[in-house]
Write a protein that binds this DNA or RNA. Structure first.
Length: 846
RNA sequence: GCCGGAGUGGCGGAAUUGGCAGACGCGACGGACUCAAAAUCCGUUUCCCGCAAGGGAGUGGGGGUUCGAGUCCCCCCUCCGGCACCA
């Protein structure tokens, strides 16, 4: 007779079809139902649909949100759990050039593949709310929000120094550049001056910083944002220039050290450099400035080890003492921070000390270092010295007094400076949102009216910039490019497009009401569903996406369009999934399938290789494809293993043998209910009450309790471990009451939903287990009748005792002292002290 | 250099407020079933001494607090992540 084994390939497509047919995961929309239950909004960071398809890292976070949403749904929450596509971006544009197709076609093809792969995992997404940022009915609303920003004066065009990436043929935002390279590809970036769109995110710096207090996010992500915003308190001080009209401002966090200022430094890009330089110094300064201009940011930082600079020949007037101090030009002062000029205080600043030593400039200490201090610049606290009216004051008091003095004498004021810069918001690409902006022939920038949206991407022949360096959209037909304004003026459309971040700044709002043709989303939907209750994604978005989205959200809040200050109440970062890779002595990689272990060593054929854990990558031949895993073990095993590997937030290596472990667990779960020989229900199942198997009943309640709380706190690895413990025990038990089996299947359902549906149906459960009621645990049954008490002598375990769970101190102490094994170690000595920890242990000290 | 986070068996990892270190899984070893294998099931599995009973050591290293430390404090080492002339 054919055995009825657990067969995920039969079960999984079947239940996925039924879920779809019964619309099991449609978000409730009935107003009465919405009002009657609490809501839960579980959000995944939506993927960019690349041509490479899904890798096993993607589903980790998706599985976690799916498990939580499924449990919440069973617990009676209205659940919103959507998925969509961050679909604008350069790779599709490049593929379009390569294949001679339109980027939209490439994008749709990739989306279909991603959707297929994601659907195989059996996630309970509401596909009716799927969004695609590159679809016209989505990006018209991105343009709509841009108009809101523009109206509020938060979007402007300016000639600014930009990060130009020649390899990409476009500019990049500050956040996209690190060490002079594009963070995604490592392509070098250079400085250029260009007329570009900027968003005034700096206006929101303080709120973006403060409101981090309101959200439940990992501390290190908050820390990264705080650092990126980079608030520092200090003072702006005005310096006059000897013999000239001009003045310049410096920003300092140490106004208390003003008396120690022995020179000033301007950045090479500072506008005053050219005007104040003396004739004698002109050629030296000019060649220094020219040299700095040719250096990339990378070189400037690298060469930072050795400072350099040139005297301008001009002197500044010390605002308090009236002394002359020399003004230098040096590239250790950046034009992009503060005012691009500093007062140098070598006594209290390491960089200034180094520079002063190099060029033999005077050094004056204005804070007395401790007697044993033998360093150079002293940054610690101490009484002010050499500082006239500040002498004797500690730093904080000295700062306050100096700021008061400056304000009184009109020489400066207290000031807060931020590291955060305005957001460079335009790109020279085709595959992005067109700006709803035209340029009139007289140069005026004109925003389109709301009813003129959308501005659709026009077809063009080639996706390269024009020969004279204008963006690809400049190639569009004049029908698109040229417009007449209502007042009769002729105008040209903006040909830059928005950066990829634009679409992801508000997609979580579009999900609330994805089909709305009148508005980006209805206010009542927003009030009901926001904020996002759980947002899971990779830490790589800690600054970029999360900062930009928070910024837009706050603008929408100020427009009265959203009701919460912050969009994402709880954020969680899943750790990256790594994989073993194998390399020989020459560094050549081998596919894991070629490698076998012999003893302690690894070989690929006859070649000895070493193993290591690395990021998955094609070149390292260690990429694991979810389709292959599902093909072999099924989606439930894939889901379970993704979460069982270890703590969600941790990096961890993929191990195929680990998938087999959870696959075996699902087999055991199957056999608990189904007799594999006959295909009928297992004859261990009984209609007897749960109490007929008291041990198992207790374990069930402990399991429900632990699975509920561990799922809530995203400790899914230990929740699964508890389910395994239950199955192991239940397998041993002589009978299995149906009620117990039913509760177990419901607790398993969020994790292995296909198997759970099948078992639920076989057990005769009502409807879908995905929509069944989550089991409740009975606290009284979560405690054992008797507990094991450990008996220690001098802190070492010597014996165990079984006592009633409510046994009092005296009883436990007596029993422990009576223990034969304990007595042996007491060696006849009188106990000096006996510590009783009820329910845990007794420690006898001699 | 600065700021975070982490170091636990052969491996992934568990351990309320300080209270039985190593749950669960992998791997390995032994056994059952089988002509045999796979699958499955049962058992063992931190290390050292011991036939065993039993004993000793043990959570990166060193010190401390405590009846008791993986957990708290101090110093050091290693790894990972972020930032890096931000005045």
């Amino acid at each position: 007779m054919a055995k009825t084994l657990y067969d995920p390939h039969a079960i999984e497509p079947k239940w996925q079809a039924i879920w779809e047919e019964r619309q099991a995961f449609r978000t409730p929309s009935d107003p009465e139902l919405l009002a009657s239950r609490p809501k839960f909004y579980a959000l995944d960071m939506f993927p960019y649909p690349s041509g490479a398809g899904l890798h096993v890292g993607h589903p980790e976070g998706y599985t976690a949100t799916d498990v939580v949403s499924r449990m919440k749904r069973m617990q009676g929450f209205n659940v919103l759990h959507p998925m969509g596509w961050d679909a604008f971006g350069l790779p599709a544009e490049r593929a379009a050039v390569r294949e001679g197709k339109h980027p939209a076609d490439i994008t749709l093809r990739n989306i279909d593949n991603f959707r297929r792969q994601i659907q195989r995992l059996g996630f309970g997404y509401d596909w009716e709310r799927e969004v695609n940022t590159s679809a016209v009915d989505y990006y018209r609303w991105t343009q709509w929000i841009f108009l809101k920003l523009y109206e509020r004066g938060l979007a402007y065009m300016a000639e600014v120094p930009v990060n130009w990436c020649p390899a990409l043929g476009t500019v990049l935002a500050n956040e996209e550049v690190k060490d002079g390279k594009y963070v995604e590809t490592g392509d070098p970036v250079e400085r250029r001056s260009m007329n570009q769109w900027m968003l005034r995110i700096t206006v929101y710096a303080e709120r973006l910083l403060e409101d981090l207090e309101l959200v439940d996010w990992p501390e290190h992500v908050k820390e990264m944002q705080r650092h990126w915003i980079g608030r520092s308190e200090g003072a702006e001080i005005v310096f006059a220039i000897g013999g000239r009209e001009e003045t310049f401002d410096v920003f300092t966090t140490r106004p208390d050290t003003l008396f120690g200022c022995t020179y000033c430094v301007l950045s090479p890009e500072h506008p005053l450099v050219a005007t104040i330089t003396s004739e004698a110094q002109r050629s030296a300064v000019e060649s220094y400035v020219a040299e700095s201009a040719t250096k990339s940011d990378l070189q400037r930082t690298d060469l930072a080890k050795e400072k350099s600079g040139v005297y301008t020949g001009a002197d500044a007037v010390h605002p308090v003492t009236g002394d002359r101090v020399p003004i230098w030009v040096a590239d250790y002062v950046l034009m992009s921070y503060g005012s691009g000029a500093i007062m140098a205080v070598p006594g209290q600043d390491e960089r200034d000390w180094e520079f002063a030593e190099l060029y033999d400039l005077p050094i004056v200490r204005t804070v007395r270092p401790p007697a044993d201090f033998d360093g150079k610049a002293y940054l610690g606290d101490g009484p002010a010295i050499n500082s006239e009216f500040l002498d004797g004051l500690e730093i904080a008091a000295a700062k306050a007094k100096m700021i008061a003095w400056l304000e009184e004498h009109g020489a400066g004021s207290g000031r807060v400076e931020y590291r955060l810069r305005d957001w460079l918001f335009s790109r020279q690409r085709y595959w992005g949102e067109p700006f709803p902006i035209v340029h009139a022939e007289d140069g005026e920038i004109v925003a389109l009216a709301y009813d003129e949206l959308p501005v659709e991407l026009p077809p063009i022949d080639e996706y390269r910039p024009t020969d004279d360096g204008r963006p690809p959209l400049a190639r569009a037909d004049p029908d698109w490019l040229e417009v007449s304004l209502p007042d009769g003026r002729k105008a040209t459309r903006e040909t830059n497009t928005m950066p990829q971040w634009a679409g992801s700044c508000w997609y979580y709002l579009r999900y609330l009401d994805a089909g709305n043709e009148e508005l980006p989303f209805a206010p009542e939907a927003e009030r009901y569903w926001m904020p996002v209750d759980l947002y899971i994604g990779g830490v790589e978005h800690a600054v970029l996406h999360l900062l930009y989205a928070r910024f837009w959200h706050k603008v929408l809040y100020d427009c009265g369009l959203v009701s919460t200050q912050e969009p994402f109440q709880k954020l969680f970062n899943q750790g990256m999934i790594l994989a073993y890779s194998y390399q020989d002595a020459q560094g050549k990689y081998y596919h894991p399938d070629e490698v076998e272990e012999r003893g302690e060593r690894f070989f690929a054929g006859d070649v000895e290789v070493t193993s290591q854990v690395e990021k998955m990558s094609k070149s390292k031949l260690n990429v694991v494809n979810p389709d292959d895993v599902i093909g072999e073990y099924g989606a439930d095993s894939m889901r379970l293993y993704e979460l069982f590997m270890g703590p969600l937030e941790q990096q961890k290596p993929w191990q195929t043998t680990g998938v087999e472990g959870v696959y075996r667990f699902l087999h055991r779960s199957w056999r608990l209910v189904v007799d594999e020989g006959s295909g009928e229900l297992s004859n261990k199942l009984t209609d007897a009450p749960p109490a007929s198997e008291p041990e198992l009943e207790r374990l069930l309640h402990k399991t429900i309790k632990k699975v509920s709380s561990d799922t809530e706190t995203l400790q899914m690895n230990t929740a699964i471990s508890q389910l395994m413990i239950f199955v192991n025990e239940a397998t041993q038990a002589s009978s299995l009451p149906r009620e117990i089996a039913s509760a177990f299947v419901r607790a398993l359902a969020p994790y292995a939903p296909h198997l759970a549906e099948e078992l639920w149906a076989r057990l005769g459960g009502d409807g879908l287990v995905s929509l069944a009621e989550w089991p409740e645990h009975d606290e009284a049954l979560c405690e054992d009748e008797t507990i094991t008490i450990v008996v220690q002598v001098n802190g070492k375990k010597r014996d165990e005792l079984e006592v009633a769970k409510d046994a009092d101190r005296e009883t436990v102490e007596e029993a422990a002292l009576a223990s034969e094994k304990a007595q042996r170690f007491l060696d006849g000595k009188e106990p000096k002290k006996v510590i009783v920890v009820p329910g845990r242990l007794v420690n006898i000290v001699v």
